[in-house]
């Protein structure tokens, strides 16, 4: 199993303001780690930094290793090619490409990525809806279908480490549960996943390790069993604090 992530002294700044400051974050191979935090806490900034990717131009510093290899100076494109695959928040698929074109577009890059590359047939087994929609362009898909496609194309790229930024955003509760269950199945199959979520209740059901991010800092972290009883989690996210 591969995909061990280690981050040390990561600082990300937009202009002058430091948005994320994380001294240490690790994800063990074959596990699902989830970073939760409120809107604006820095979740996207953090997960984008792990992919060395952004639509803005933040300044990054710190060390990132994957399976012991130093990735700190590797470009976003090369990280994707080497198996650190990000599904970004919002626009994550090409609207002008069909489902099948989206699924074929990244595959040439998968050689040597280090993870397991899913064949097209496996993708369609996993997401039957995408098979039905394979000739439709991204623009014609629903939000849920787009999110499935975004994850599916990432799986095609043989990820060692799959980075998911709020895949549940804008989806109906039933779809959220289905999507997270699918992600859990992938992890049980050996994939390493770092997930960023605001939907804490749903995420708790599938996660191994939970991190709590507040104003760009990790203020708590541990196994789900331990974190479930953490007063900060209960107070902020599980509707506690009333009684």
């Amino acid at each position: 199993m591969s995909g061990r992530l280690e981050i040390r002294d990561l600082r990300v700044a937009y202009d002058r303001a430091i948005a994320v400051s994380v001294d240490h974050l690790g994800v063990a191979p074959g596990t699902l780690a989830t970073v939760i935090g409120a809107n604006g806490a820095g979740k996207s900034t953090l997960i984008n930094a792990i992919a060395n990717w952004s639509r803005a131009a933040p300044r990054l510093s710190g060390a990132i290793t994957v399976d012991g290899e130093d990735f700190s100076r590797v470009s976003a494109c090369d990280r994707a090619r080497r198996g650190v695959v990000l599904v970004p928040e919002g626009r994550g698929v090409f609207m002008g490409l069909t489902v099948e074109e989206n699924l074929r577009a990244g595959v040439g890059a998968a050689r040597g990525a280090g993870g397991r590359a899913y064949a097209l047939a496996e993708i369609y087994d996993l997401f039957p809806r995408l098979y039905e929609r394979r000739r439709n362009v991204g623009a014609a898909l629903s939000g849920g279908e787009r999110q499935m496609l975004a994850i599916a194309r990432a799986l095609r790229m043989a990820p060692r480490l799959l980075l998911l930024d709020e895949p549940s955003i804008g989806l109906a509760p039933r779809l959220v549960a289905l999507l997270l269950a699918t992600i859990r199945t992938l992890v049980d199959g050996g994939l390493t996943v770092l997930l960023v979520e605001q939907n804490v209740v749903a995420a708790l059901e599938v996660t191994d390790v939970l991190y709590l991010l507040e104003r760009g800092r990790l203020i708590a972290g541990g196994t789900v069993a331990a974190m479930r009883d953490d007063p900060r989690i209960i107070a902020s996210y599980l509707g506690g604090g009333h009684g």
Binding site: A51, W53, S54, R55, S75, A76, C77, A80, R81, V85, L86, P88, R91, G92, V93, F94, M95, G96, L97, E101, R104, A105, G106, G108, A109, A110, R153, M157
Partner: peptide
């Protein structure tokens, strides 16, 4: 063609193309 798809990707969203491992 594959190359045509790459051109369309660059046309639509170059940053996203990088996440697909495409050199722009």
């Amino acid at each position: 063609s594959r190359f045509g798809a790459a051109v369309r990707m660059v046309a639509e969203d170059p940053p996203l193309a990088a996440l697909y491992g495409l050199r722009v």
